[in-house]
Design a protein around this nucleic acid. Structure first.
Ligand SMILES: [Mn+2]
Ligand SMILES: [Mn+2]
Ligand SMILES: [Zn+2]
Ligand SMILES: [Zn+2]
Lengths: 138, 138
DNA sequence: GTAGAATTGAAAATCATTTTCAAAAGCGAC
DNA sequence: GTCGCTTTTGAAAATGATTTTCAATTCTAC
């Protein structure tokens, strides 16, 4: 997981228009969004916003650049959100209201060397999301 | 995550034929299998084995009974495997050979009370899978 | 401007999973 | 056994997110 501490602004110039639009949208949101949601939201405010295909492509490159992370919740739909460039984090996802709490530290990274020692397995990535009921919904 | 310490044998009687066939197949395998793989394997050895729809339904009920767990690897395909009834575990999945190491302890369950205290969030489930390169493939 | 490269998007394809719905199997009552 | 009813099964169709195609548009360099 190499970090890429490039400023969003610096990177922004090299992005395609579609990617810039998607990035801008994500900057305004604090929650996990599906590709289709992003597409709808963009189209709502601008008739000529990027098409769905372009949104998918934009998300792919933003993820590759480390500006956005893709989150797997186990339903068949990926979610996306802006992250600190090169970093990632996990969530507590409320099954009632679907809101999620962004965790500040990764529980898995700390374990990587122990896993290496015990199993000879070199960790390159992971999925971790926690489900339950949040304070408000309880 | 209530445990259901019913013996596989005891439960087996109440299962549909389709579920029994799927369960038997899973008992012979030590690896994660997709629904389609399970279906093919069954059909290979028996022309009249359950159809794909039945396999999906069988997996659903076996998971509900706690005999089988469903594993999310982030590609669009769920994997299934036999577990100690009512329990679950996570994996180190090799990206080269696709083999996976079954971990013996869950890293998340220990954290549930801390999460409750810190966030007022009542954990009911989670996804956790770790990717990388195994000893042999390295 | 002009040629060649990169970007875009509508429509079609893909593919795991779910739904439909009618046939087959199981089952208790008689 | 047979009748009537419930459960199970499975082929085919539907679903739905994502990917692929491919032709049109936009950029970029010269
Ligand atoms: Mn987040
Ligand atoms: Mn396992
Ligand atoms: Zn992490
Ligand atoms: Zn666990």
């Amino acid at each position: 997981m190499a970090k890429q501490p490039q400023s969003t602004v610096a990177v922004n110039a090299r992005l395609t228009k579609g990617s810039q639009k998607v990035l801008q949208l994500l900057e305004k949101r604090n929650s996990l969004s599906t590709a289709q949601e992003i597409h709808s939201l963009l189209r709502n405010e601008d008739e000529s916003a990027p098409g769905l295909t372009t949104v998918y492509r934009a998300l792919e490159s933003l993820v590759a650049l480390g500006l956005v992370q893709s989150v797997e919740l186990g339903d068949g739909e990926k979610r996306f959100e802006l992250v600190t460039p090169g970093e990632h984090h996990h969530h507590l996802v409320c099954e009632r209201c679907r809101e999620s709490i962004h965790l500040d530290q990764c529980l898995v990274e700390d374990l990587e060397s122990a896993i290496k020692t015990k199993y000879g397995f070199a960790v390159t990535g992971h999925i971790l999301e926690i489900f339950g009921v949040c304070k408000r919904c309880k």
